[in-house]
Design a protein around this nucleic acid. Sequence first.
DNA 1: TTGTAGGCGTTATCAC
DNA 2: GTGATAACGCCTACAA
Lengths: 364, 364
Amino acid sequence: MSPPQNEKRSVSLPDVASEAGVSTATAARALGGYGSVSRASREQVLAAAARLGYSRNELASSMITGRTSSIGLVLGDIENYFFSALARSVIDSAKARGYDVLVTNTDENIEAERTAVRVLQERRVDGLIVAPVFSSDTAHLARLTERGTPLVIVNGTIASLDIDCIIGDNVVGAGTAVDHLLSLGHRDIAIVFRSSGMPGAPMSPALASQSGSERVTGYRQSLERAGVTPRLDYQRGGGLRIEDAEIAVNTLLDLEHPPTAIVTTNSVIVLGLLRALAKRGLKVPQDMSVVNFDDPPWAAQVAPPLTTVAQPTKEMGELAVELLCQRLGSDGDPPGVHRLPTTMQLRESTGRLKARRPGRPPVK
Amino acid sequence: MSPPQNEKRSVSLPDVASEAGVSTATAARALGGYGSVSRASREQVLAAAARLGYSRNELASSMITGRTSSIGLVLGDIENYFFSALARSVIDSAKARGYDVLVTNTDENIEAERTAVRVLQERRVDGLIVAPVFSSDTAHLARLTERGTPLVIVNGTIASLDIDCIIGDNVVGAGTAVDHLLSLGHRDIAIVFRSSGMPGAPMSPALASQSGSERVTGYRQSLERAGVTPRLDYQRGGGLRIEDAEIAVNTLLDLEHPPTAIVTTNSVIVLGLLRALAKRGLKVPQDMSVVNFDDPPWAAQVAPPLTTVAQPTKEMGELAVELLCQRLGSDGDPPGVHRLPTTMQLRESTGRLKARRPGRPPVK
DNA sequence: TTGTAGGCGTTATCAC
DNA sequence: GTGATAACGCCTACAA
């Protein structure tokens, strides 16, 4: 005798309609807020819906309208500050425009990325924002655009597709970081980048992400401008986890001629670096200067506060959603690559190079 | 003349069926991997699907089967480490069981929570995991369970509903933190908790979340056990943002008799605390002992490494998904409250109380 | 093993 | 303003 007879078929539009004494069409119009409905009927329908505990089935609605009001977000590693900040920004921006977000984590695994894209497509998301694992292995992304599903790339570019790409100015950003270290007298500058291979492995384009590669490029170019020849053994893959990065840093510290400054290409790597230094009792910046790519909230609060290259994560997320919505509305400028500038946050983890040998006074 | 005639109707099951020269039923069976299909037909269908670039419409499928293979996750603030770690855990666990996750952020706003729950329900998620803003304002959650939608609560309990709740042992956790400070000789111990009101406002149950309130309770009980009367002006709401927490801490530091130790109830608040201390040149732990609730990866890497009360975020997320899946399968134990133990991470941000007045040597 | 036909819950298109 | 009715794309008895 109770209306909410659980575990049965849920109350649907015809139920509401008959309860309100109108047709399903009228009920749909009243509940959907479109077409024209008389005041009286609308109130009848709304009351009936409330009485029955009606909940509109978005699935059915989407099947008809062809849109789900949802977008898919495919990220590499949501534990990395860059991606979590990006996720936050995308979720907020999307909500402001009436979209929900389906978040997927790939762990920088191309197979996971392919699966994610397929599943999201099967869910008929209206559009996708993807931080791609590779900028070359993109058949699954090409298929998306062929089907006409709007796609925006973040933290990478896809040269073969005519779509919007948003990426930080990694070459310049890394360059300014190295320039800064050079200006402090450092010459033995290393870089530890996120890589999919074994931690400690030397640089190889296949191991690093596009962003990572670009940052290494900026690093090299800056050194070469200063007349310093980049050493391969100063360019190490730091793996994906804090522990991996720690191992990679240790291989650097164990070199016969260890670096005096290290650039890290993300916030996971830098934690491994700090851990490795702490375990050896090495002080920052006295024994080692450190610059990190990305500027998480805690960077300013560690001791010493970390000098970083900040990316405009919030703007990137907002722009991604905005561009996606332009495509959804089929208005907007032709797609292209959006390079967003980075900003150097000068704090205290970088110091002037001191002479290595005791007896020679530190340069002042 | 090209097969992928964009902006048209996408290729659907009947298209594949006719291309393969079989009925839609056979095509559906071949693609869905159920029923019995002859080897020959299956290959025909699969080939046709690949040729046409077929992508199954999960929406339509879900309408028939009644399940979407997706779960909704409603969180307070994904920028807070606790929630982002929880999200990561839930997303991973859910994927392992074949579910996608719809993540929503409420910013601890009850209205946003209501909307999120409604929208997710309209999307027909198979179940929901909610970190509730309030443990009392729960009509929208009650409606869910009435409809029969499985629901698991994290970081809170709902006494009025017979559902699974997962929550850290906040009273005990905060108690051990304060016990530790007491054992170091501290008596003037303050606590700054996440609150929705103005930063710096004194404790009020309406301002703090359930977890926050419980942590304050543990704090008070520990003090009282030690014969110390809790002071109201040592219990401050820290708002939601780092900047708010900084303000709250400043009101503490400006007291005529400021505390010698501070407990913070989450990782956003503690960053505000560290910032406030740094700006005043106060050293941790020499001038101020600090314990934080939650143990983000950077806590061990700041200087000094932070003493924290760690929650088992990974286990919480896994358990939430597991319990939800039990409800979905309608097997499993009767629902109840799962209190997960916290673990104290003793590091270096807490030190023995020094005498305040110069002249008296610090206690050693 | 295969095909036919009905239905999931909504929106859209018409007449009325 | 309102009400039949036909889609949307798929699953699933049931019959062949």
